[in-house]
Design a protein around this nucleic acid. Structure first.
Lengths: 146, 146
DNA sequence: CATTTTTGTAACAATTACTATTACATCTTT
DNA sequence: AAAGATGTAATAGTAATTGTTACAAAAATG
């Protein structure tokens, strides 16, 4: 199972907000046009980002913008904001192993710390990447011949 | 989205095969009883593990066993055997960004190598854990007062 | 060789998550 | 009051996961 596109959409949204913040009012329709998804999808993700304190959204007049400097927003922040993983565990465990079997009785405990290690490795890398990096790369490619 | 329970079930299966290989014939019904899922679920995963060269399954007479020493089977081997991730990419990308937008046009390329880094961090950790470690831990807990 | 046990797999259902879409109440400015 | 946005509920379609029944095919055994 893949991680849902909400994650890459959210990053795309933040990159758009930053890129166009001085030129346009960045509304959900504006974002929907760049990302090419339904505006309601944008608004749902916008709400999740707002609840996580990553963006500010203006009601009535409209428009969204990052709530803090992009170098302070990591991929992990975005991931946690939009990806609702049950119990915050990446791996789904089979629920009812047989407690009368020595393997079934102990497998959960034994695997747990190993799977946490894997999840932490992934989250450590997510945390090491900031939205600022994305903006830097974006500026590089848009400056050189588009 | 969580990684499916096929992964932890597969590890449980291999741990069972190794634990009981001398005492019992380890059939799909036997495994289903320890793991507490339907035998057909077991057989499906067994086929995937067989196709990946991780186990050998006897038809007719029945029984499954690891195809190589457990210290040579990593969590990554098992993960790849049972988890069918599209294009081998952990992150699902939104498909049709707007090519007329400077962000939409470049976001995919810019994100790709960053997301690969995350996936590699995860796979590196999966590769560092072997089934032998699971067996060692299992022996430790079953020796000391069960 | 027939029987028995087991694997391999198809078929179907139930559940869940994701994504798209319509509709509309609510908020804020003008 | 009107206009333009957001927030959110409701619904539908699709896909993946898991459970289950059913049965053909394989292999050992008497």
């Amino acid at each position: 199972m893949q991680i849902s596109s909400r994650f890459t959409i959210a990053i795309h949204m933040l990159a758009c907000m930053e890129t166009f913040k001085d030129e346009y009012k960045v509304t959900s329709d504006f974002l929907a046009d760049s990302i090419n998804v339904n505006p309601v999808v944008i608004r749902r993700i916008l709400s999740q980002l707002r609840d996580a304190g990553l963006v500010q959204v203006k009601r009535g007049t409209g428009g969204a913008a990052a709530a803090k400097p992009l170098k302070e927003i990591t991929f992990l922040d975005v991931y946690r904001a939009v990806e609702c993983i049950e119990n915050n565990t990446l791996f789904h465990f089979h629920e009812n192993p047989n407690m009368d079997c020595p393997v079934g009785k102990n497998i959960h405990n034994i695997l747990d710390d190993k799977l946490v290690r894997v999840q932490e490795a992934m989250e450590r890398e997510l945390k090491a990447i900031t939205l600022e990096e994305v903006m830097d790369d974006l500026k590089t490619v848009t400056d050189n011949g588009r």
